[in-house]
Each structure stands twice: as C-alpha cells, then as structure tokens.
Nucleic acid binder design. Structure first.
Lengths: 143, 143
DNA sequence: ATAAAAACATGATATTAATCATATTTAAGA
DNA sequence: TCTTAAATATGATTAATATCATGTTTTTAT
C-alpha cells in the first residue's frame, strides 16, 4: 500500500514530533539510528520533506531537523503525497484508466467505501494527533 | 496496493470467466490481445495460476486456458495470494513487525476497520460473483 | 507414427524502487 | 574570518519487479 520510503518518512516525522521543537533539533545521524533506517536513505527523504515544508531544518553546527507548530498540523496524507505521489492511493485497483463511479470496474464498488474512508482519515489526521496518541501511550512505535 | 502482476491476473481471470468454459478455451495469444497485456508476461501469470488450480488449461492443439465450475468459486483474494503473496495486504501499514491490536502503531486503529472490511470482501467475493455483475452490465472492464 | 499447436518451464533483460556515496552550501562559534 | 558541523544537491549502485525470449512437453489430427 505504501512504499518503503513513505513508511520511513512517516516514522521519521513521528519521531521528530515526539522529540524536537524549534530549540531541540536532531540530526540525521541520530534519527537514522533511532528509527532504524539507513542514514543516507532517510537523509534523502528528510531533505525532500524539508524542501516541501512538511518538516523544518537548519544547516550548520547545532542545526538539524525539527517540527514547528505549522509542521505539526500537516496531515499523514501530505507526507505520503510528497513521497509517493497522490495517484498511488486513489487509482483504480485494477489499474484501469476509465474506471469511475459511473462505469466502475468489477472491484470498484466492492472496495470503494472502505478505501474512501481510509483516505479521508489519512487526509484528516495530523501529525499532532498521532503524536498525542503516542504520548498518552495509546499507540506505540516499536522501530 | 496490488502489483501489476495481480492486476493483470485478475483481468485475465475475469476475461476467462466471461468467455470460456470446458468446451470453449482461449489461448494465451488471444487473451493477451483482448486484455492488452504483453503475451509473454500474461503467459507466465496464467501458467502460475494454472499450476495452483485457480484456472484450468489443456495443452496441444485445441488447447488453451479456461475456467471450470470449481475455478469460478475461487475468491479474488486467492488470485492475489498466488501472485503477490498473502502478507502484502495484511502487514502493518508502517511495516512494523510488532504492530498488533494490543500494541498498535499510530496508524493501526485509524485504518484497521476499513482495511479489515476490504480484506473480508476480497476473501468473500468469488470470480463468479464478479463475472455476474459484468454480464448484467452492473460493472465494466475497459481494458 | 508424425507434424503441428498449444501450454509449460526456465532463464534473460529491462525498468523501477531502494539504498548508498560524496561534493557543495550554509551557519555557528572561536 | 576561519574552521567545523550540519543540511543539501546530485548522482551511483544494488535489489526487486516487470517484461521478454526460447527450448521442452503434451495433445490432437492426419
């Protein structure tokens, strides 16, 4: 469903949500160790997220990646979109170009409600929402 | 969500459901043209499905692929499993090994209901069910 | 029996996604 | 202002999927 890249990106952003702010930044080396994703790989993803303003960063000594208040209000879907692109989650399950509500493919109506629901949730929930659940020990991130 | 291979396989099996039986078989060359998938590629997939008894085939002149009554009662999920493997659809969305109902990842509870629903539907609906919808023009397969 | 027509088995190539490497730019602090 | 520590930009390599090719086996019909 999600690419490895999106999974890694989400883990990284959640880690940033829990452990950083404008004052306390974290550098790629540390985040890589903490979420157990190769340094060079997660670095590339973080740079892309940073360029797209999903996360924040500063260069140089004492620099690193972090989330500001605005970043925390980004949704899960926005991260997925930056990394995987929008169409991936929304295209026809059989890959048919001309599948739609009016002329649905054999599987369309079957899974459409579940999938729409899922997409709406991903578009609604923010990083902050998920971080709060983690802080309350309602959810876990065993990396 | 599904690999190209699974998508092609599903299209092919649905085509077989509509156009073949024990008497009227179709050879890989024709099915390839009809569903618009490269011959050598779909051949490999059909051979795998045949080996796993999801579809039927006979060799030699007048031979080809077809569905028998038993084949028609296979579920969508069984096709996906043969081609993509089982875990692909059911593993944690963040790829976490230790994510489960008791210790869910931040996204688990969010999407779990929708995803379970989707999986159940795929496990329940048979080829025959989908073929019937197509025959009644309730759904379409614009390949 | 034999020739031809089909699937079957196996493996090769190409494309895409995942992973790794490194030179450049920026900012902090001495 | 110089050195160093960090992200950034870019590209190379590796691994996984997708795609293609071909010789082998089986079956039908002559």
């Amino acid at each position: 469903m999600l690419s490895n890249s999106s999974k890694y990106a989400l883990k990284a952003v959640l880690y940033l949500a829990l452990h950083t702010d404008e004052i306390n930044k974290i550098m790629v080396k540390d985040i890589s160790e903490r979420i157990n994703v190769p340094k060079a790989y997660i670095a590339k993803l973080l740079q892309e997220l940073s360029k797209r303003k999903i996360i924040s960063s500063t260069k140089g000594p004492k620099g690193g990646f972090y989330l500001n208040a605005s970043n925390r209000n980004e949704t899960i879907m926005q991260i997925i979109e930056v990394i995987d692109g929008k169409k991936k989650l929304e295209s026809c399950i059989l890959g048919l170009e001309d599948c739609n509500e009016q002329k649905p493919c054999p599987i369309h109506r079957l899974i459409s409600p579940s999938r729409s629901k899922m997409i709406t949730l991903l578009e609604t929930k923010t990083i902050n929402d998920l971080a709060t659940d983690l802080e309350l020990n309602k959810t876990f991130l065993p990396v």
